[in-house]
Computed example of a mutant assay.
Amino acid sequence: MALSELLKIVTPPDKPKEVPAKPNWAAVEKKLGLQLPDDYKLFVAKFGSGLLGSFVRVYNPFSKDEYLALQKSVISVCEIYQMLSDTFPYEFYPETPGLLPWGNDDNGNSLFWLTRGARNKWPVVVCSGRDNRYQLFEMGMTAFLARTFTGEVKCKIWPKPFAVTSRRAKFEPY
């Protein structure tokens, strides 16, 4: 699993924030009407809420913060992007296949899964928050994060140079 790639470069907190002792993923998935990728669930369990590499936030369905909570973010982000839908080649959640947000970055860009095929094989799409640029990555969320932070994968929407040593091995819990 790709989470192991990420754990080689980023140390999770000893006690992740906003993660219940027994996360009720079934309730989260029922509310969304779809099952989420396993690497996402493992990431949330290991890291909780926080900022990865001083740049990326992964939404947490157990967060009380409306800007970090997965369900609230899915609704608000999809509403915003649906207004721009004629500039993207994909539909947005709840359409399937569609773009389902899982995080954002400090530059106002959004991170999505493209919900096509098996959930554990959903590719990542990064959409610019300032224009109609997007980039598709044929890999899961944690593989994408690990490989962008090591510089193996380049996201054209993110600042250059992105994969610098100062960003690695940092996770700041909220």
Rank of each mutant, 00 (worst) to 15 (best):
D105W: 00
L99S: 04
R57V: 15
P12I: 03
F62K: 02
N24Y: 02
L32C: 03
F43Q: 01
E91Q: 13
L52G: 01
K17Q: 13
W122M: 09
K8N: 15
T115S: 08
L42V: 11
D106T: 11
L84I: 06
N24C: 08
R57K: 14
N104Q: 12
F47N: 06
N24K: 12
V58R: 04
I75D: 13
A169V: 01
G50H: 06
Y90M: 13
F47H: 09
S73W: 00
E152V: 13
L99E: 04
S110L: 06
D105E: 08
P161G: 10
N104S: 15
G151W: 00
R57D: 13
S166L: 14
L51R: 11
D105G: 06
V44G: 07
R167L: 05
V19L: 10
K154R: 15
G103S: 05
A69K: 08
M141N: 04
S76H: 08
R147G: 07
P123G: 11
G129K: 05
P94V: 12
A45N: 12
D131W: 01
V74G: 06
Y93L: 13
E138M: 11
P13C: 07
K15W: 02
S49D: 13
F149P: 02
R133L: 13
F144M: 08
L68R: 07
Y174Q: 14
K41A: 11
F62Q: 04
K72E: 15
I157D: 00
P123V: 07
L52W: 00
G117T: 07
